[in-house]
Structures are given as structure tokens and as C-alpha cells.
Nucleic acid binder design. Structure first.
Length: 1061
RNA sequence: GGGCCAUUAGCUCAGCUGGCUAGAGCGCUGCCUUCACACGGCAGAGGUCACUGGUUCAAGUCCAGUAUGGCCCA
């Protein structure tokens, strides 16, 4: 097995082989169990969108999850990491439509079925890419269980969840203002709207009073909506209010007579105010309930008419609820919203009703997908009653009492399953979660898309001139609910297993809606004899004139079920792959242990998973811990994003540095701040050299790599940047290929890997099986440095365990780095070189420490450690008593080291540190005097230092090139250099033939100056009575000791200086 | 407008509950092609911890404010 190791670690040579070994062995596969003695550890991956390949942000998040997952697997947990992808409704549909457009087709031309097929192809392509990337990164997911938010298992869960919420009255249909994206023709949730500052104008329009007594001036940024105005509002505190009270306005163009109302939402004009709104206000507000959310609210308060003057593409139209369009208004019909704006402003100007126009910069909602301004638009949509206490209230009650700042009065933590158990790390994010739920609005879940879970509701409209529904039972049911609300009724459909509701649309129109559950629900829910299966039910409904809602669900609806749907909820027995050992995944692994995600996901996803998991599973949380990781920014402090093209493909980093180097660096960067900066370089595809690209500033003010770049060493060769491709201004070709990215940030990780590689290479060359003993080595009987490295191993293991428990990832990486590089390589390996070949016990220690080091490092750097594992396992020679390192074929499934706490010996560590300070003093002097490494020197020291040197068992001699140790009380050679160490004079001789006395004096004077400063500092502290009396006694004593040591060092240096003459 | 984060060595960042004689990596300087590693070793230079106040025996760390940059939400 053991082959010669190359001099340099080349990740590409081994990473793929290692991945294959993991896959073949089933190392990452988890099965459900009822065995309580084996604790579970589970994580569901935040399913990446199938819109595009993963970027560095995903790499960061998945690395952190993998560290935790691998660690717990090694600790003996039954560990499941559930992988999968998200269909990402609108995002995917948009990219597919874009691709189709490039190919000259359109979605509407090809039809729903063909389009979904195309999208499915896209999904398959990117799912493969994403899973490939996860594998390349070393993510130890259970790849036997890859889920997709639209696969059968997830679709069943979505259908069931919808059915339950519908049945329980938590899903309703409502006519509301939605955030309408006129470009993609769909409603967006509030979270899908991005606010952007826009340099616009404030137009001041004059509306004549009906009685001819003058006019009022309204200020608006959106004059095109005036056609739908149904009131003018004024603040009741406005001095003009009394005069205008009860009057009406004749709306220009339309001629509509609309009231002047009083509402304190209206901002009082104040030219002196620092608030731009008050500066700009005319005091009169045009109220357009159908086209502005605030006006909608005013409309509700004042019972105003709602007149929608726009079509779905945001053009002016009288087909959607506007029935008093005058002759004058006809000219504006059909105009787009911005054409209409111009035309209307021109009309007001030419009719002398435009008072003024002022530049005004304000914030406008834009579609996160199409980037066009959203249009508040009145339409029928499905809502989840997220504001219901059963959802938002439940989410708030889930919060850990230590993290929640307010709690509902009636609630006592712990009185319901899951209450008070949700914890955020870092804890500041609990506030984001809380504030979101305290101000939550009902969640619009319907999307006018094709790609997604189609809403499982069939509807039929009944018209009856009598104003009564023909069915008496339905009339009775309707009488019991508020007008416009849905009433649940019993019918042949409910007898067949569906939920049947009815709602009054207008005076003589009713809509009946039937929610059909999935077949598995029909199988499990008790029903009477009229039951039908799903297909028969749907066929009967359609035969009866019911039509299925064409809309699909918001992507987050299916994501919200992810920790349940991936595990077979609601009926795992219907999906045999989720069962086993007499139980199922859901019972074994939900609640999951942790969710790791980015902070903008707290509202979009974390919130909804908590609400749903709790609602559907009797208060049970989807997870107890939420870790919010930092945002990866580019070198200019800009968020990495697809649209900016400043994102980095992890495969580029794996290509330039290796997966472990990438992972190690990402882990090391993960502190609890919220941003990490990643300056990105480009790699010239022609020459392979890394270089800093030329940057340009976009019109939006972003710093991005110029679309085209020139090879740094060959000006005739060019290449294309990722930004160029993302912005669509550059296309890669054979001559101008797309350049990969890299970053010098990852050098540290690469160097670390190489260091470990070589440490193992050294060790296996020195370890000799025949030296081993069958009896475990007693650590107390080993060499000083062996005891020391075992002590350091013990404290390192403890620190790593604490770091994981507290999600301090950078501490994990730094602790590993320190132990392996500094302690193991720089000190231990150097120290044992003279003795290792002959010392069997030391060989056992070296083998064991390397074995343990690979285990400790494995969660962060799985590839190199797995590659080295058989080499170290083979080379081991002997066990160490008190250190458990059970053999394992694969490192990925090996046990985490267990070390006896007695292994950590403070006295040994203390002596080592003292000896090492002496070593450093000697080395410094050697360096100053330019002594060759091979030259042995003599140390002349007083008794206490001689004891230390002896106790350290050759450490000082080996690490500082000392050939001989003598007592300084004896005769000193003519040429010797003094060093102040622990308050005594230590002399070194044999450094060189002659010593420059001036240099010596300068060196000693520098020591004296430094010590004098320290002494002054200590004296200052100790002469402060407040300190001496107020500070803890041990600190005061420590200061006294340091003062004494500094004084002794100064005296020794002074004596040496005097000795030089 | 509300919330959050950052400001520490030339650069990128640690420094958790106040005790620091302020650390690391890169870069820089000098020496070393020493039989694991030049993706290396040894040594060194480099910081009034953004600013102004305050609390405290003690402030990089806590509090208030200011400035600059960034993110999220409205």
C-alpha cells in the first residue's frame, strides 16, 4: 500500500481517487435507527438554486457544514447530511426563457408542457454540475439521498402541506395589491423586491375643486396613476383642512368627482425640515388605492373606490376595473407606464395644470429578477396567513429566552414542544428573526409561472342572478362568514377526500374552490364510502367544469418544508427509501441539529421552516441551532454576485490550490463578523500566470474586472473576464478564452497542506516497524519532548472540541495550524531527529501523534488527510497508553481521538517554554553574529539553567546548535558573548573567532533599554495604590514577579556590559 | 427612516466574559541550497488599536458621541 510520497503535494493527483473511495465505501450513508445509545447529528443542505453553478459563498457554507458533519461522524454520531437542490421557480424560469430567446423561441410559443420539459433539462444539467461541485469540494453528503424540491417526495409534502393549511383556513384567496413584475408577468413576494434609489422627479399637479372655487395641488412621483385616483387626502392638522372639508375635486382628464378626505398619513409640508418628504410635500396627496400600497391602506380606512387603470404589462387600460374612462382619457389607453407618464405631464402642462417639476431622488422597488420597477397591482392571489398566531406567534415562541428581547405575556418557555429552543449564532441575528415576525404580513404564495408546484386547487364560478347560491347549504355556510371570506362546505368532493370552500365574488357571482390532496394523503386520511382516488377526483372535477389554478407556488413554500419533505413527511412509509430498522428518517433526524446559512435567508427561509415544521409536527423545530456565516465580498468590498460577475467558481480555486487549501482558508476566515474580503486575481489561460486584472467602474459605480484583459507577459494575447460574460459584453472564444480566477488568499491553505504532506513523508521514512513494542507505551516514561508533544496534543484536542461546540471555525483552523506547524513540525520533528532512529517509544509517540493529527485535521482538510492515512496507519509502531486511536480502513469513518486528560503535563509544558526561550536567545545571538548553522557552540550557564538544559533532554542542544554545555562558574574562554536569561548571565563561546565589541555593547544596551521600559511600566502599576489594593492578588503578584525578573535581566545585562569593559 | 457590522503592523485579519509586556499570515530586511518541506528554516524591522469624551485600580476590549466604509430591512 505504502508508496513513495512525492516531494510536493499535488492535490489533483489524489482528490478524485479519494472521492471515489468514499463513494464506494458508503462512508457518508446514514440509516434511521431507534437505538437511543447512538445520538443523531443531521444537517439539511440549504438547497442551491439550479439556476447556475455554485460560487465561493456556497463553498464557504458547505465547507462549514462539512466540518461539523465530519467531526460529528468521527465522534460517533449517526450522521446525516441531506443533499439536494431547489427548483428556484422564477429564477430558473427566467434563465431558461433567456436561453430560449437566444435560440429564437418563446415560452408562450412552445406551450406549458414543452417549456417545463426544457426547464427540466436545464435543471438536470445544473443539478449534475452542482452535485459535481459538492463532490469536488469534499462535501460528505449522503449522495444516496439527493432530493430536489420538485421530486415526488417533495411534491407530495408540498401537496399535503397545502391541503392541511387550506383545510385549517391558513391559506386564503385575496384581492390585494401585489408587487407586480410587469416584465415577467408575475407577482413577487415582498422579499423579492429590491429597493433602489432612483433620480426621479416630483410633479405638482393642480386638481380643480368641483365648486369652481380654485384648486388643490398634489405632489406625485407617479403622475400616470392619476387616472385611478379616487380621493385627495389632506392632514387633519393642516390649516387648510377646515376650508376644504367636505369639498370634492373634479379629477382632470377623467372628470371623476372625488372627495377630499383627511388622513394623518399625509405629510405636512415643511420647507425647513430635514425630511425630504416634508420638504417636497404640497400637503395634498392624490389617493390611488389600486396602485400604491399606502393609498390602499388609506382607501380601506375611508372606504374609497378602487380603480385599476393598468393591464398586466403596466400599460394604461380600461379592461381591468376602470369603467369611467372619458373621451379625453381615450388617448392614453394602451400607452406604456412611462409613455403615459410623459403624455399625462404634457397634458397637464398644456392645460396649465402643471404647477412645477422638481428633481427628486427616491427609493423605488425593483424586481430582483428582471430589475424593472415593480408595479403595485391589484389582483387575486393565494396567501398563507403567516400573521396568524399559529404561524408567526409560534415562530416567536420558538426563540431561546436568552436571545428574545420581548416575549408574549401568556407564554412560558418550555410549555410546548420546541418552545424556547431556537438559538442563533452569532446571537445578534436572533433580533432579525424576532423583528421580522413581529411585523410579518401575510405571505403571497401564488406566482404566475409555469416552473414550480402548480396550486392544487380547482375552481368554478357560479353565477346566479338571484344573488343566492343555488345550493342552500352553501348559502347557509356563507351567511356564517364575513363578506368576501371563504366558507368551508360539505359536499360530494369533501366526501371524496377534498376540501371544498366557497366565496362570494360579487352580488351574483360565487367561486367554489376544491383543494385536492395527494394520493398518499387520500390513502391515509379516514374517509367515507364515497372516496375516490386522486386521478378520479380530478377527472370528476374537470368533468364538472372545475378548472385548475394555473399558478404555481412561491419557491419558498417548498423550501420551507425541506427538513421534513426530504425525510418522507408526511407518510415516510410511502417512500421506502426513507425507512429502515423499524423506523424512518423523520423520526431519527428531525429536528435536525443545525442550519448554516447567510443572513439574508433568515426572513426568506429560516422563518418559514420554523413556522411550518412547528405547525405540521406538533411544535417541533426544524433545527435547534442556526449558524449565520459571513458574506464573501470581493477585494473592493462588494458582495459577490452572479449579476456582477465578481463571483468565483470554487472549481477555479480547487484547480489552482486544491480543495483542502480552499476549505482550510475558508474555515480560517470564518470569524463572527459579517463580511469577509476576498481579493480576486485572474489566471491567464495562455501562460498560466496569476495577475491582478484591470478594473473598470460600471455606471452603477461597481468596480469590476474589465470585460477583456491582456495577458500580463504577452501583450498579443487576450482573454475574457467573468464579468464580461455575465454582463453579456464579451464572449469567450478559442483566441480569447474565459480566464479562471484565483486568489493569493488560499496560498496559506496550500502551504499548510504541503507542510503536513512533508511531515508525514519525513515520519514514514523514519518509522520502523521492528522497533515497535506490543505493550502500550507509558507516556510518563518517554523522552521529555515526547511528553511535551503529547501534552500539547491533549490541550489541542480540548481546544478543537470547544471550538466546534461554539462554532468558532477560525479557532479550529488556527489551533490546527499552530499545533501541526509550530509544535509538531518546527519543534517536535526537529527535536527528535537525533534520537528517533534508536528510540522505540519515541517512534510509537511520533506515529500516534501523526495519526491523531490527521484525525484532527480531517474535518477541515479531508482529501490530503485521507490520502496520507494509509501511509501513517502502516507506519504506526506501538500504542500510547491513554490515547485511543482505533484502527480504521478509512479516515472519514475513523474515530475522533480520545486522550486521557492526565496526558497534559503542566510542568513539562512550563519547562519546555522556558527551554524554548533560551533556545530563542541563543539563536538570536547566533543570527546576529552570523554563525553558520552547522557550527556547534558551547553554553556556559549557572546551575539553575544547567538544570533546565538537562531536564529538557537535549532539546536546547539540538534546536540551538549547542555542542557542549559547561558551568559558567568555571573558567570562561577569552572570547564569549553574554546573554541575559532569567536574570542570570549565560555565556556563549565558539561562535566566531572574534567578536565585535561595539555590536555586543549595542545589543546589550538595547536589552537594557527594553528592560528599563518594562520596569518603569511595572513600577508605575505597583506604585498605584488602587491597583495594588483593587486588582486580584494573583495579578499583583504576577506583576511583582515580572518586575523582579525584568530587574534581574537588566542587572545581568548590565553586568555583561560592564564585563565587556 | 430602522437594524447590523467594520475601522488594530504596508496588506488581509485574530484578539470570546476588561488584566496586553497587542498577535498571525502575506509582504519587507538579513542569514541559511542543514539528509521532510524554498509552497521551506532561523532571526529581525514594523502598531499613539479611526477620533472625542466617559466608566474603572486597569480599556484594543465596556458606555456615549463623531467620522469613514459596508451589509440587511423599510
Amino acid at each position: 500500500m505504502t508508496k513513495e510520497l512525492a516531494k510536493v503535494y499535488v492535490p489533483a493527483d489524489t482528490e478524485k481517487l479519494v472521492s471515489e473511495r468514499w463513494a464506494e465505501s458508503g462512508a457518508f450513508h446514514a440509516e434511521p435507527t431507534t437505538d437511543d445509545s447512538v445520538p443523531s447529528y443531521s444537517v439539511v443542505i440549504p438547497p442551491p438554486n439550479v439556476t447556475a453553478a455554485l460560487h465561493l459563498g456556497h463553498a464557504l457554507n458547505n465547507t462549514l457544514q462539512d466540518v461539523l458533519v465530519r467531526y460529528h461522524r468521527m465522534r460517533g454520531f449517526n450522521t446525516l447530511w441531506m443533499p439536494g437542490t431547489d427548483h428556484a421557480g422564477i429564477a430558473t424560469q427566467t434563465v431558461v426563457e433567456k436561453r430560449l430567446l437566444q435560440q429564437g423561441t418563446k415560452r408562450l410559443e412552445m406551450g406549458r408542457e414543452a417549456f417545463i420539459e426544457k426547464t427540466q433539462e436545464w435543471k438536470d444539467e445544473y443539478e449534475e454540475t452542482i452535485l459535481g461541485q459538492l463532490t469536488e469540494m469534499g462535501a460528505s453528503c449522503d449522495y444516496d439521498r439527493v432530493r430536489f424540491t420538485m421530486d415526488d417526495m417533495c411534491a407530495t409534502a408540498v401537496r399535503h402541506a397545502f391541503y392541511i393549511l387550506f383545510r385549517d383556513g391558513l391559506i386564503y384567496r385575496g384581492k390585494r395589491l401585489v408587487n407586480w413584475d410587469p416584465a415577467t408577468g408575475t407577482a413577487l413576494s415582498d422579499d423579492e423586491v429590491e429597493m433602489e434609489d432612483v433620480a426621479g422627479h416630483m410633479w405638482y399637479l393642480r386638481y380643480p375643486l368641483e365648486d369652481g372655487s380654485g384648486h388643490v395641488t398634489v405632489a406625485t412621483t407617479r403622475p400616470e396613476t392619476m387616472l385611478g385616483d379616487t380621493a385627495v387626502a389632506i392632514n387633519p392638522d393642516d390649516p387648510r383642512a377646515a376650508e376644504l372639508r367636505g369639498k370634492n375635486v373634479r379629477l382632470p382628464i377623467v372628470g371623476r368627482i372625488i372627495p377630499i378626505i383627511e388622513d394623518d398619513y399625509v405629510v405636512l409640508p415643511d420647507p425647513e425640515s430635514s425630511d425630504a418628504k416634508a420638504q417636497m410635500s404640497s400637503g395634498c396627496l392624490k389617493v390611488t388605492p389600486a396602485h400604491d400600497p399606502n393609498d390602499w391602506d388609506i382607501g380601506l380606512r375611508h372606504d374609497l373606490e378602487v380603480i385599476n387603470v393598468m393591464a398586466a404589462d403596466a400599460s394604461i387600460s380600461d379592461q381591468y376595473g376602470w369603467d369611467d374612462a372619458s373621451d379625453e382619457a381615450q388617448q392614453f389607453l394602451g400607452l406604456g407606464r412611462y409613455e403615459a407618464r410623459e403624455a399625462l405631464v404634457a397634458w397637464f402642462e398644456s392645460n396649465n395644470l402643471l404647477e412645477k417639476v422638481v428633481d427628486y431622488s427616491h427609493s423605488v422597488g425593483h424586481s430582483y429578477r428582471s430589475h424593472v420597477p415593480i408595479e403595485p397591482w391589484l389582483s387575486d392571489q393565494w396567501y398563507v396567513a403567516a400573521s396568524d398566531d399559529r404561524l408567526a406567534g409560534s415562530a416567536l415562541r420558538a426563540q431561546s429566552p436568552e436571545q428574545a428581547t420581548t416575549r408574549s405575556a401568556e407564554h412560558q418557555p418550555g410549555d410546548t414542544n420546541g418552545d424556547g429552543e431556537l438559538r442563533f449564532v452569532p446571537d445578534r441575528y436572533a433580533k432579525t428573526f424576532q423583528q421580522w415576525h413581529e411585523g410579518i404580513r401575510d405571505w403571497c404564495i401564488s406566482r404566475q409561472l409555469w416552473w414550480g408546484h402548480q396550486i392544487p386547487v380547482w375552481s368554478s364560478t357560479v353565477v346566479d342572478a338571484s344573488g343566492r347560491h343555488p345550493n342552500e347549504a352553501i348559502n347557509n355556510a356563507l351567511a356564517l362568514v364575513e363578506p368576501g371570506a371563504a366558507a368551508t362546505v360539505q359536499s360530494r368532493w369533501t366526501a371524496a377526500g377534498a376540501v371544498h370552500t366557497v366565496r362570494r365574488l360579487t352580488d351574483d357571482e360565487f367561486v367554489e374552490s376544491i383543494c385536492v390532496p395527494p394520493q398518499s394523503t387520500l390513502n391515509h386520511e379516514p374517509r367515507d364510502d364515497d372516496s375516490m382516488d386522486e386521478a378520479a377526483l380530478v377527472a370528476a372535477l374537470e368533468a364538472d367544469g372545475f378548472v385548475r389554478d394555473p399558478d404555481v407556488l412561491d419557491t419558498w413554500f417548498s423550501s420551507a418544508l425541506w427538513p421534513m419533505s426530504t425525510m418522507g413527511w408526511p407518510y415516510p412509509e410511502d417512500f421506502p427509501e426513507t425507512t429502515g430498522n423499524g423506523t424512518d428518517l423523520l423520526s431519527t433526524f428531525n429536528p435536525t441539529s443545525l442550519l448554516s446559512t447567510a443572513r439574508e435567508i433568515i426572513t426568506l427561509w429560516v422563518s418559514r421552516m420554523v413556522m411550518f415544521n412547528r405547525y405540521f409536527l406538533d411544535g417541533q423545530l426544524p433545527y435547534t441551532d442556526v449558524f449565520i456565516h459571513a458574506m464573501v465580498q470581493d477585494g473592493h468590498g462588494q458582495k459577490m454576485s452572479k449579476s456582477l460577475g465578481n463571483g468565483v467558481d470554487p472549481r477555479d480555486i480547487i484547480y489552482s490550490h486544491g480543495a483542502d487549501a480552499m476549505r482550510f482558508t475558508l474555515v480560517q476566515m470564518t470569524t463572527d463578523t459579517q463580511d469577509v474580503r476576498m481579493p480576486v486575481d485572474m489566471v491567464c489561460p495562455h501562460t498560466g500566470e496569476a495577475f491582478t486584472p484591470e478594473f473598470i467602474t460600471t455606471s452603477a459605480g461597481h468596480h469590476v474586472a474589465a470585460p477583456e484583459q491582456t495577458s500580463p507577459s504577452d501583450p498579443t494575447k487576450t482573454m475574457v473576464s467573468a464579468y464580461g460574460v455575465a454582463a453579456g459584453v464579451a464572449q469567450p472564444s478559442d483566441d480569447t478564452p474565459l480566464a479562471r480566477n484565483t486568489s493569493a488568499k488560499f496560498d496559506g491553505g496550500r502551504n499548510f497542506s504541503n507542510k503536513v504532506w512533508n511531515a508525514v513523508r519525513f515520519a514514514v521514512s523514519r518509522l520502523d516497524d521492528s522497533m515497535g513494542s506490543s505493550e502500550p507505551v507509558n507516556p510518563g516514561a518517554t523522552h521529555f519532548v515526547d511528553q511535551w508533544i503529547l501534552s500539547r496534543l491533549a490541550t489541542t484536542i480540548a481546544t478543537l472540541e470547544e471550538a466546534v461546540a461554539s462554532y468558532q471555525f477560525n479557532v479550529y483552523a488556527d489551533t490546527l495550524y499552530d499545533f501541526i506547524w509550530r509544535d509538531l513540525c518546527d519543534r517536535y520533528l526537529e527535536a527528535i531527529k537525533p534520537t528517533i532512529d534508536e528510540d522505540g517509544a519515541q517512534q510509537a509517540v511520533l506515529g500516534a501523534v501523526l495519526d491523531a493529527s490527521l484525525r484532527l485535521m480531517h474535518p477541515v482538510c479531508p482529501f490530503i488527510t485521507e490520502t496520507l492515512w494509509p501511509h501513517v496507519s502502516d507506519a504506526r509502531c506501538g500504542e500510547i497508553a491513554g490515547l485511543e486511536l482505533p484502527a480504521s480502513e478509512l479516515l472519514a469513518t475513523a474515530a475522533w481521538p480520545v486522550i486521557d486528560s492526565s496526558m497534559s503535563n503542566d510542568a513539562v509544558i512550563g519547562d519546555f517554554d522556558r527551554a524554548y526561550r533560551l533556545i530563542t536567545e541563543i539563536r538570536t545571538l547566533r543570527a546576529k553574529q552570523n554563525v553558520k548553522p552547522k557550527q556547534r557552540i558551547t553554553v556556559h550557564a549557572p546551575a539553575p539553567v544547567l538544570e533546565l538544559i538537562a531536564a529538557s533532554g537535549g532539546l536546547v542542544e539540538t534546536l540551538s546548535g549547542v555542542g557542549e554545555v559547561a558551568d559558567s562558574a568555571g573558567d570562561l574562554p577569552a572570547i564569549s558573548s553574554p546573554v541575559a536569561f532569567e536574570g542570570s548571565q549565560v555565556f556563549l563561546s565558539g561562535l566566531s573567532d572574534e567578536v565585535n565589541l561595539d555590536d555586543e555593547r549595542a545589543r546589550l544596551e538595547a536589552v537594557i533599554e527594553q528592560k528599563s521600559k518594562q520596569i518603569a511600566g511595572f513600577n508605575g502599576k505597583l506604585s498605584n495604590d488602587g491597583y495594588v489594593n483593587g486588582a486580584p492578588a494573583h495579578l499583583v503578584q504576577e506583576t511583582r514577579d515580572m518586575l523582579a525578573a525584568a530587574v534581574a535581566d537588566l542587572d545581568a545585562a548590565q553586568a555583561s556590559l560592564d564585563g565587556l569593559g
